[in-house]
Design a protein around this nucleic acid. Structure first.
Lengths: 340, 340
DNA sequence: TTGAAAGCGCTAACAC
DNA sequence: GTGTTAGCGCTTTCAA
């Protein structure tokens, strides 16, 4: 592999000059520039990112930790993160934490070793238990957590307001006459799940409905988990509606319920949260709460990069509003003309 | 940020010794080692990946180009790639080519700039048109293409045998009595789609069934595309079965067909390819062809790293067998006891 | 407008 | 078992 010296020699100039034409960092004589460009071309030269980064103390890289590639919500998020990173000439190093605190910490360490300039933590499981750890990491690089507030930690955050989203959903269901509304929440107490649960609990209370423990189930973030949770719930209670803390769970639950022969939404209404593409693909199409993923990603990455460029800039909490999307799983419509 | 000299000074040893304990590259006196470790700890020191990589001429990074995060098949593939990379102490730089030849090339360039040591190209659109380009890239780093053969290019490959998979599927459908079997193939002539199509075509021919152009449709790799393609096909013909070149298309098609009031599989049977998680979530569950993703990823990454470590080792074509998975969308079963 | 030289943080060869 | 030293390939003063 050719290096900058080879190019310099071939073009009959110094390394400095080559560097200048490479980075447009100073005016270079037209002819000189041409010679350099030709040398680069003919040697098939690519500057070393390593050397450049070392000199500049810059990797143009940030780390991203998501729970799982296979949750479609994160697929959509990653797509948006990639585009945003590209715009700012950054690249994302993506790792899956698998909802495992130790794995998350290990990866953060690893990413720090790789000189990431910032960190995006999505539904980061152990943010509270690891407070000292996060403090330490935040001293080295800016962090933005997604799907949850910053809880007073020295990090930024960008998230959809799940409390509000589920409040809207519950209000809607209650107004439709539902009183026995079950919820499948997450097995662990992730903040993103908790806030939605609180929205559920408080809205019930505000409408004079007592929380019924028989109507609360817990599950992993998978469709299979939702299926099993619905089975357990129906074995001991008779809800007229079930909501999942996310669409995947709700879809799993719906599968069980339909297999059991119940009519959806006639006998049991179902709803989720996130508005993943799949939610409009299943039949009946799933009522859900939309998260404007692109917008969140854009604001999050912009904020992260701002903070990278100016480490003394303030952390911010970006809260994004959600929208209730009413579909067939809670509302018998004559004919759904909207497709996907 | 502390560097190796700071640690050396603090521990009262030379940089070389610090390096030795860091990398376990030589025996170090027990006490010395302890002092170094303490210095590292107290300074909160992390070695610079950049400097190390520069010295060693190694980034322990390879690039991955997939078409789209949002296609669940690639989510599963990425998961497996991540795990394999981790095992070998590599990390993957993941980019989406979006089935766009120019974007793919741009990203490959970029990844090369980032000193990736190898490249994994998944369903790489433009492999044939870009032959000279690929030749050039292959001179610099080993490449493995997935989902397609190497076509005589200087690259390795790892793929499921789509021709064979669709042969099995078609044989099964024909033996069940289907004669008018429609296929939704991909809009562009991706190799991974083509080989499946050829399996379809040849199996029909071997059973004395002529190819009927009215039964062939084309679509993007999305459920929405499958939906529209099914609509167009049914508008001009009456198949008794429709297969999608992948599950996503098949699921979209199934959605349209059920919305139109047809019974699946009673009036029209449906099948796909890939066995994505979603295929067993929809109802009726989708008959499909399973790709052992984990196995492909494992063999692909192992081969890539072997070639990185020994550039003169031979490229290889890893062909992996697929399995026909029969489910409700082609077979009326009494009660499907298998869940997801 | 250009070149010389120093040095980013590390590893590896060699010497002791 | 440990230290010294010479770079890896680049950017960035500083001089010219």
């Amino acid at each position: 592999m050719a290096n900058i010296s080879d190019v310099a020699k071939k073009a009959g100039v110094s390394k400095a000059t080559v560097s200048r034409v490479l980075n447009n960092t100073a005016v270079v004589n037209k002819d000189t520039k041409k010679r350099v460009l030709e040398a680069i071309e003919s040697l098939n030269y690519t500057p070393s990112f390593l050397a450049k980064g070392m000199r500049r103390k810059k990797t143009s890289t940030f780390g991203v930790i998501i729970p799982d590639f296979r949750n479609p919500y994160y697929s959509e998020l990653l797509k948006s993160i990639e585009e945003e990173a590209r715009k700012h000439d950054y690249i994302a190093l993506i790792c899956t934490g698998e909802m495992n605190a130790e794995r998350e910490r290990e990866y953060i360490h690893y990413l720090l070793t790789r000189q990431v300039e910032g960190l995006v933590l999505c539904c980061y499981v152990s943010i509270m238990e690891n407070e000292p750890f996060i403090h330490n990491v935040a001293k080295r690089v800016p962090i933005i957590v997604m799907d949850q507030p910053s809880f007073g930690l020295p990090v930024s955050s960008a998230y959809a307001d799940g409390y509000n989203g589920f409040s809207k959903l519950l209000t809607y269901l209650i107004e439709k006459g539902h009183k026995r509304i079950g919820m499948i929440r997450s097995l662990h107490r992730y903040p993103c799940s908790e806030s939605r649960f609180l929205g559920y609990r408080d809205t019930l209370k505000n409408h004079g409905i007592d929380l019924d423990q028989d109507l609360i189930e817990e599950s992993e973030f998978t469709a299979a988990g939702g299926y099993e949770a619905a089975k357990r719930m129906l074995a001991r209670s008779a809800p007229t509606a079930i909501i999942g803390v996310n669409d995947l769970l709700a879809i799993g639950a719906m599968k069980y319920i339909r297999e059991k022969g119940y009519d959806v939404p006639g006998e049991i209404a179902i709803a989720g949260h996130d508005n993943i593409a799949l939610s409009s693909l299943v039949s009946p199409q799933l009522t859900t709460v939309n998260i404007p993923v692109e917008q969140i990603a854009a604001e999050a990455i912009t904020q992260l990069i701002r903070k990278i460029q100016n480490p003394r800039s303030r952390n911010s909490d970006i809260v994004i509003d959600t929208q209730l999307i009413i579909r067939q799983s809670t509302e018998q419509v004559k004919k759904d003309v909207i497709m996907m």
